[in-house]
């Protein structure tokens, strides 16, 4: 019995140390006063945290990543909500094909998606890098949008739409009056999941960078290859706390984990 009662806390301690420890080290390192990335940190200062905000390329790529995460996720939802609705409520001819096609971007490695887009969309059709990134991130988020929205639609009885129609509502009106209010949590969860996925995404964007157009994670990798100071650690910590904050708030107010 004692072996067993020791097993549980010890296992949890080791696993959590392995999973979360490195992140804590990064956080500690970002408060270092020293010139190079080190642990334990040399002294305490906010200089690297503050420096992050002054690096011009970080600011530009942060703006780009934010735009892609918000815009791409919104576009994915605009495409994904009707598709989910069709898949969940209609006898759709070729439903399995549609489902496979819209969720395929999740199966194929991102680097391949990015490369294919570069070679067969960007180059032949003279599409700008920003537009290409937008298309890529929309395609990338689409499977998550469809999955999460479908799940919340499947949890909602479909006869409420029929009830609304029999009470005089049009089909479209029924969707906005009785379906949307009841899947709002699912849509917001899909948005958050899509946002985090898009924001942290690297491989898709790898080949899709041009002069001055880069996503933040790519910019961070480029920066750390040249400079070995704690500013990437500081930026990582800030982003991590931002993501955790968003997800925590979502869980608090929406019960995020129900949908994901």
């Amino acid at each position: 019995m004692t072996a067993r009662s020791l097993f549980i806390p010890l296992t949890l301690l080791l696993v959590l140390a392995f999973l979360i420890g490195p992140f804590l080290i990064i956080v500690a390192a970002s408060f270092s006063a020293g010139e190079t990335l080190n642990f334990p940190p040399q002294g305490f200062s906010l200089r690297w945290i503050l420096k992050v905000f002054t690096v011009e390329s970080f600011r530009a790529s942060f703006g780009m990543s934010l735009f892609l995460a918000i815009g791409g996720t919104a576009a994915a939802l605009v495409l994904g909500i009707p598709a989910s609705y069709a898949l969940s409520r209609y006898k759709l001819p070729g439903a399995e094909i549609v489902r496979t096609v819209v969720s395929a971007p999740i199966i194929v490695p991102g680097i391949i998606v990015g490369l294919a887009l570069l070679r067969y969309i960007v180059v032949p059709f003279q599409v700008g890098i920003t537009a290409a990134l937008f298309l890529a991130h929309t395609a990338l988020v689409l499977p998550y949008a469809v999955r999460v929205v479908s799940a919340s639609l499947d949890n909602l009885r479909s006869d409420i739409e029929e009830a609304a129609v029999l009470l005089g509502s049009s089909r479209l009106g029924a969707f906005f009056r009785v379906v949307m209010p009841n899947i709002r949590g699912g849509i917001l969860s899909a948005f958050i999941l899509g946002f985090v996925t898009s924001f942290n995404q690297v491989p898709v964007s790898l080949f899709l960078s041009g002069p001055g157009v880069r996503t933040l994670p790519i910019d961070m990798i480029a920066y750390m290859e040249i400079v070995f100071d704690p500013s990437v650690a500081a930026l990582s910590s800030l982003l991590a706390f931002l993501s955790i904050g968003i997800v925590f708030a979502a869980e608090r107010f929406l019960g995020f984990s129900r949908y994901v």
Partner: peptide, 13 residues
């Protein structure tokens, strides 16, 4: 929820 870049970067340290 944390960027894989940040998570991987920690191992350098």
């Amino acid at each position: 929820m944390i960027s894989p870049v940040a998570r991987t970067y920690a191992w350098i340290v």
